[in-house]
């Protein structure tokens, strides 16, 4: 079983995220790391590997040079090898171009039995790339899995929707996305960290994938950001320390003053 897990290097949500002059995300001056939500995808990939003989996990990443950190983290957790697609032309790509590059990379690997992703990136947070990958690779999508069960190529996942909880079934090859409810991601062990240094990582450019540079990047994006505005800081509100019921009184008065009651 060949498992390809897509990992994204994102800007740290706890850092001061900002935009560049061309309205793209500043990925140079803001610290980055493997998207926390992709750690769950790596974890499920490793669990799949553990229950299937002759299984291998390839960590696939599209991103600038420093995105290699995300691949390394996946290798430290236990992935067998890495593929890092990096090309200056990719900068500023929208979700569709990203999905195209990922799909081309999966095809270059000779396809995959299972493509695993997180439920969203923690920076763009659109949650559309897994569905787009399924569309481009013409594979069934079993997405937003909070529970993953499989027996060989047969998969069953639990998907918690807005109005119902569903069980989705499909046969590999398929695209699987997992939520943060799917199971805690393991920490890299010391042994894992040492072993990762010897694991193979291939570096591919767009020409290796046969993707034309004109199909990706900011210029080829099918959407354009017109304007970005920092949200004005909220003005400091009133702070009341509760003493003998004064807190409840202040709360009720506030709600009444704002006509909520």
């Amino acid at each position: 079983m060949k498992i390809v897990v897509c990992v994204k290097h994102v800007t740290d949500a706890t850092a001061d995220q900002k935009f560049e002059a061309d309205n793209t995300v500043d990925r140079v001056n803001v610290d980055g790391l493997l998207s926390e939500l992709d750690e769950y995808a790596v974890e499920q990939s490793l669990q799949l590997k553990e229950k299937n003989e002759d299984a291998e996990v390839v960590a696939l990443c599209v991103g600038p040079e420093k995105a290699a950190d995300a691949v390394r983290k996946a290798l430290q957790m236990g992935a067998d090898s890495g593929v890092h697609v990096s090309d200056e032309a990719i900068a500023g790509s929208d979700a569709i171009a990203t999905a195209k590059v990922l799909a081309a990379a999966v095809n270059k690997m000779g396809g995959a039995d299972v493509v695993v992703t997180g439920m969203a990136s923690t920076d763009g947070a659109m949650s559309v790339v897994p569905a787009m990958l399924a569309e481009l690779l013409d594979l069934p999508q079993v997405t937003f899995a909070s529970v993953v069960e499989s027996q060989g190529a047969e998969f069953r996942i639990k998907r918690d929707g807005d109005v119902a909880t569903e069980i989705i079934g499909a046969t590999a090859p398929l695209v699987l996305s997992v939520t943060d409810q799917s199971g805690e991601a393991r920490y890299p062990s010391f042994k894992g960290i040492m072993a990762a240094k010897k694991k193979p990582v291939e570096n591919w450019s767009l020409s290796d994938l046969g993707v034309d540079a004109s199909e990706v990047g900011l210029g080829a994006a099918w959407t354009a950001v017109v304007e970005t505005t920092a949200r004005p800081a909220r003005t400091a509100g009133e702070i009341v320390t509760d003493e003998g019921g004064s807190g409840a009184q202040a709360l009720v008065n506030f709600l009444a003053g704002k006509k909520f009651i």
């Binding site: 909220r234 509100g237 009133e238 702070i239 009341v240 320390t241 509760d242 019921g245 807190g247 409840a248 009184q249 202040a250 709360l251 009720v252 506030f254």
Partner: peptide, 17 residues
Amino acid sequence: LVDLGIVGDLHAVLPAA
């Protein structure tokens, strides 16, 4: 971020409110 903040135990403040 708040417009109103109550420093206190929710188990006392909320039932009274």
